[in-house]
Design a protein around this nucleic acid. Structure first.
Length: 860
RNA sequence: GGGCAAUUAGCUCAAUGGCUAGAGCAUCUCGUUUACACCGAGAGGGUUAUAGGUUCGAGUCCUAUAUUGCCCACCA
């Protein structure tokens, strides 16, 4: 027999086992014969990124479901891919070429920049792929896609063309979020808000032909250069007489009107607001309704434009200081207040956003002819997608209900260029430029680049080869989509929107959110804080199986969870436990092997019957929980069975009452049920026991043999456990030397060997001993007498016994009360009533035992 | 301002309206009994945030309140 180490050598074996899986070909669903299918298109990470814990957590969940479904006989497709991640990658690559080649992207030119960046992503994606594999994901790498692969991109761009033809995408001048550093427009979700200490300036606007002023409050005085009105709330009695009057805009010396708009908050500032339609989203709306002029005074470099007169060319912050200074000289600043306000910053580079009016492309989400947002809302409300956790449905509904048009044009180079061509006044939308007619001049392509989420938002069907691809026909709509709750608004919503539009179907039947992973103090992981856990280091130290468990156990979907080394370590310990259970089984007998089927006659002892009964119950519960997507509870049930029932009790008893067949049967089933969660260690054990001839990954998920489940057996075994525990308890309390087996007397039938070994006692079977001088430990069915009267504290024991008697009496009274209640008997399910009755029986026999003990103690 | 959650043992978290609310870690006591010290036995530790309500029955459902966190938003 081969020597087996005390721990699973994951460092050496993980990569070898992964190779074995890959070579088997079963990551590819084409190699599985079945009519049932399961598909999960994996979220594409940034092609030049690195695996972080968030990815690892997501992949673990995806792989657990994937492996579970595969073992249930389905053709499982976990389709991996990579994202080009527009703005983010452009920033990284620009920095890289600057450092390495000393060139800017402008020096390279758009075409060359794109080519080089493409090569960069291709070269880096292999690195990312190797990291993804280490977590053990059973994905079909032969189908791996990249968002800019020609076949994928073609389908995505066709969607744009179709949207254009349907009138659902349009180009228009609208106020957008502009990042001066990235030099691009951003969609609303790419902007985050942060509190900053700022100042609120109260500026006096002179009233025309009067010496009076109207004071407005603003945090951005520089925008006043573009003011075209001052607005007050029509309900505000203070300003009723001002409405319609003319003001003189200071510095610009222009006439502007006082208008009334109910969107003005009367409580804030002075109640009068300066309106700059070109540089504030609310002002833009008010301006539109009141037909105000839009004067652009800030440009795309966050500098004042020619419209700003003498301030032209200044950076906004410099202009702000200058304007405040000038106003002070004119005595037009009433006061300044400190104010904490929310400013918008770029999600990527944290630069303050400048709201600008700009010519951009938008997806119309609520068109009169076809409202995409209403279609998605209807699907969600109709329950076409199961969402985990369920309450995220409300978040989605709320978001879609308030959705505004989506800005999809970016002024960057890295990403798909718009499939739009111009020639003079003509516009053409299509995948390729129209055939040139030289006499009329050349077609010039639109410089804009599509938002990254426009392509990743189509991921479920572009990767499957919409609309004629075999995979599309087989696997769409997909079964499962799993993502971190932080990208819900970025990604889940876009997939629903575009998937519904293009395919007419929701892109996935189940949508599962993982929470965010936090450090031990509940803080977000961040590079600058240096509090991150590198998943690869964790795998090196504790093994991929341990990391997988720590990322999904005791964690509810959508809820944030803390993760830290000790936690991963405790799951590593579990993996070792599993390994040692195998080690015991393997060494217990020469002819030990895994057993797939067992019959009643193989169950010889109480312990045999009990462990199989527990096993079948566990299989039943675990399978049910997996189907309900409750992986955390499923593992909890499995863990309790594996460690508490099988390792702690059955294996110990098996040492006395050898039953190799039962051992082989239970091990076979727990290996299979653990496999989706801890694939490496289970595959390794399975491989050793089958001499490498079979693969656990494609073995069949156990079906519960309900005929072995017996509540009588359960009760009977629990009674034995109760007796052993009671003796252990006494031993521990009175510190009875473990080296000297305790003498115990017994006058009834009992599992002598088991009790002797597990409770470390020596049983004297006899009818003749002096019961009077002994302490009787009894349970419902078993009892022993301990000759320890001399060494125990009788008063204390009496007190304990009486306390427990009291507790039991209360319990019995409570349960009997329930049975006396007619409403309970009539209203509660029959099983509950029955359970209550049998519970009373148990309590009563325990009570009797305690009363006997009380009597014994009193006699002493 | 709107929305979503959370509040359970010292800490981190479970618990499908129904068994004496459970785990892991930490603490304390004891132990190497040949699968495992990455282990085993035992112990202590709870008014399930507060106040009401629904129900035969509530940690779980409802309504308030408090505290904390997250997301959205148009406080200039």
């Amino acid at each position: 027999m081969k020597e087996i180490s005390k721990q699973f050598d994951f460092k050496k074996r993980e990569s070898e086992i992964y190779d074995l899986w890959e070579k088997s070909g079963f990551f590819n669903p084409d190699n599985i014969k079945s009519s049932k299918k399961y598909c999960n298109v994996l979220p594409p990470p940034n092609a030049n990124g690195e695996l972080h814990l968030g990815h690892a957590c997501g992949y673990t969940v995806m792989d657990i479901f994937g492996r579970f479904e595969r073992m249930n006989g389905k053709k499982v497709l976990l389709l991996p891919g990579k994202d080009h991640a527009g703005i983010q990658t452009q920033v990284v690559f620009e920095r890289k070429i600057k450092e390495e080649r000393g060139v800017s992207r402008h020096e390279l030119g758009r075409e060359k920049f794109y080519e080089d960046c493409y090569d960069f992503c291709q070269s880096r994606s292999g690195y990312m792929r190797s990291q993804e594999k280490r977590i053990g994901i059973s994905a079909d790498w032969s189908r791996e896609k990249f968002t800019l692969d020609p076949d994928v991109l073609k389908i995505a761009l066709e969607t744009f063309v179709k949207l254009y033809k349907d009138g659902l995408v349009y180009k228009g001048k609208r106020i957008i979020n502009w990042c001066p550093r990235c030099a691009t427009a951003l969609s609303d979700v790419e902007v985050i808000h942060k509190e900053r200490q700022g100042k609120l300036y109260y500026i006096k606007y002179p009233i025309k032909d009067s010496k009076e002023f109207l004071t407005v409050a603003t945090t951005r005085p520089e925008t006043m250069l573009g003011d075209t009105a001052v607005a007050v709330n029509p309900k505000d009695k203070r300003f009723l007489s001002f409405i319609g009057q003319k003001l003189i805009l200071p510095l610009q010396e222009k006439e502007i009107s006082v208008i009334a708009d109910r969107r003005i908050d009367m409580e804030f500032g002075t109640g009068a607001v300066k309106i700059t339609p070109a540089h504030d989203p609310l002002d833009a709306k008010i301006g539109k309704d009141h037909k105000l002029e839009e004067i652009q005074v800030i440009n795309e470099k966050a500098q004042i434009t020619e419209e700003g007169g003498k301030y032209a060319g200044l950076d906004v912050l410099v202009a702000r200081e200058q304007i405040v200074k000038d106003l002070k000289e004119l005595d037009l600043i009433e006061k300044e207040e400190d104010l904490v306000n929310n400013i918008s910053i770029c999600e990527r580079c944290k630069t303050p956003i400048e709201p600008l009016i700009s010519d951009q492309w938008f997806v119309k989400v609520d068109d009169e002819k076809r409202s995409l947002k209403k279609e998605v809302l209807a699907s969600i409300k109709a329950g076409k997608i199961d969402i985990y956790p369920e309450n995220f449905k409300k978040i989605l509904i709320n978001w879609f209900a308030n959705l505004e048009d989506w800005c999809i044009s970016r002024q960057i180079w890295w990403g798909p260029q718009f499939p739009v061509w111009y020639r003079g006044e003509e516009i053409y939308v299509g995948l390729e430029a129209p055939k040139e007619n030289k006499s009329k001049g050349a077609w010039i392509r639109d410089e804009n680049t599509l938002d990254t989420w426009f392509t990743s938002g189509q991921w479920p069907y572009t990767t499957l080869g919409y609309a004629k691809g075999k995979d599309y026909k087989n696997f769409y709509p997909t079964d499962m989509m799993i993502m971190g709750r932080d990208i819900l608004f970025f990604w889940a919503t876009k997939m629903l929107l575009l998937g519904t539009y293009r395919t007419g179907k929701v892109p996935f039947k189940n949508l599962y959110f993982t929470g965010l992973l936090l450090d031990k103090d509940g803080k977000k992981f961040s590079k600058s804080k240096g509090n991150g856990i590198d998943p690869l280091e964790a795998i090196d130290e504790f093994g991929a199986d341990a990391l997988r468990l720590s990322l999904v156990m005791d964690i509810a979907p959508g809820q944030d969870a803390r993760i830290y080394e000790e936690k991963i370590e405790s799951f590593r310990n579990f993996v070792t436990k599993l390994w040692n259970i195998f080690r015991y089984c393997h060494q217990s007998s020469e002819d030990f092997r895994l057993v797939e089927k067992i019959s009643k006659k193989d169950l010889k002892t109480l312990a045999d019957k009990w462990i199989v009964s527990e096993l079948e119950e566990t299989a039943l519960k675990t399978t049910q929980l997996m189907k309900e997507k409750n992986i955390s509870l499923a593992q909890d049930v499995l863990r309790k069975f594996t460690w508490d029932s099988f390792a702690a009790w059955y294996v110990e008893i098996n040492k006395l009452e050898k039953n190799t067949k039962v051992l082989g049967y239970v091990l076979d089933r727990i290996l299979k049920m653990w496999h989706p969660f801890t694939p490496y260690v289970t595959e390794e054990i399975f491989s050793i026991l089958n001499s490498g001839e079979k693969i656990l990954m494609v073995s069949v998920w156990p079906k519960s043999e309900k005929r072995f489940i017996s509540s009588d057996t359960k009760k009977n075994f629990a009674d034995l456990v109760d007796l052993i525990t009671s003796i252990r308890n006494i031993r521990s309390i009175y510190r009875i030397d473990p080296a000297q087996p305790l003498e115990v007397y017994c006058d009834k039938k009992i599992e002598k060997e088991i009790v002797e070994k597990l409770a470390r006692v020596q049983i004297e079977k006899s009818r003749k001993f002096e019961k009077k001088k002994m302490i009787k430990i009894s349970t419902s069915k078993r009892s022993v007498y301990l000759d320890i009267a001399k060494s125990i504290d009788i008063e204390k024991e009496l007190e304990n016994a009486r306390k427990e008697i009291g507790e039991l009496e209360t319990l019995i009274a409570k349960n009997e009360g329930m049975l006396k209640n007619k409403n309970f008997v009539a209203g509660a399910p029959k099983e509950i009533v029955e359970a209550t009755k049998s519970r009373i029986g148990e309590y009563q026999s325990k009570l009797k035992a305690k009363r006997d003990l009380e009597k014994d103690l009193e006699k002493l």
